[in-house]
Design a protein around this nucleic acid. Sequence first.
DNA 1: GAGACGTGGCG
DNA 2: TCGCCAAGTCT
Length: 376
Amino acid sequence: MIKWSHERSQAFQETLLDWYDQNKRDLPWRRDHNPYHVWVSEIMLQQTQVQTVIPYYLRFMDQFPTVEDLATATEDKLMKAWEGLGYYSRARNLQKAARQIVFDYQGRWPTTTEALQELSGIGPYTAGAIASIAFGQPVAAVDGNAFRVFSRLLEIDDDIAKPQTRKVFERIINLIIPKARPGDFNQAIMDLGASYMTATNYDTSQSPVKDFNQSYQDGIEDHYPVKTKKKRPIAHDYFGLIIHSKQGYLFEKRPSHGILANFWMFPLFDRENLTDEKATPESMLVGKIEARLQSEYQLSADLHAVDVPTVTHTFTHQKWKIKLLEAQVADNIDVSYFPGKWIHSSKFDQMTFSKVQSKLWLAYQKASKSTQSVGD
DNA sequence: GAGACGTGGCG
DNA sequence: TCGCCAAGTCT
């Protein structure tokens, strides 16, 4: 690894910030340094691309203009604002932190990285981003961009997939970061990482800091960053139940922990939980589901396959395949045993749907449109 | 410290 | 289809 002299660091700062001053992206959260604006944008941007975040951020600020508005918002309105953005614990942590700030700290923001990390959902990166951008503290904000940029500039061989590697980068960046403009420096690194120094298909030859890029000079830029591979997603096969009555469609609330926690969805039955044997005929599996609906929930349902392709949805670590089954149930059934609720499709726009739930509903609509118009 | 946690885009 | 990526954090 190359070490930079003080002069070298200064030259780098100057080159980078000059470029940033001329070429920085015009983003909605860069209009000011309001910590609330910086904070919300940083949370939304976690593992999420800028162009995805922009409309969410604008709507969010429209609905929750201040940290007080967020602290006192209903969970329904909050989740609706986050609908489709993913990693939904971010939204819940965001409100938790808003309440910490408003009610525990009387609206006064913590300004150090240590104190900021006491807030829910704020880790080392976000703390560094808020401290430097909103409060002018000369601290590193080490995200994927910083890993990518500095590993290439300095030929850092540490595996960025390892948590301990963060400390290596923080130590180096804290030596290089300018005391006068730390927030601009960190944001300039991000803009660099999003333009000339992207993960793939990058072209460093036009980069403003190519003279500082050791791996480029050495022709080994594609060795960086060093990052071990992730595991492939685990497959899950489900039956998805579309059960409708005069009272609407049947929904089930997902567990409070795990993937899509607390979301309302069409009931799902895991194929593997229905039988131990792989080769069980499908009609028998459907019969088992019907029997369970009857015995556990007193719900008589005559399930039929919906004539649509299996719905697939891939998460970071799970790959779901869902075969849709449909049933119309009697008008005056007793649903008091079922841990769910009936909702008319006219009210779906008031619910918060995960993407996979939206896919199920779309697939079902497509099928019922091609045959007949099915009411609730 | 490895794995969980969403979604969209791209080659 | 698949693997990987995109301003990470929590457990």
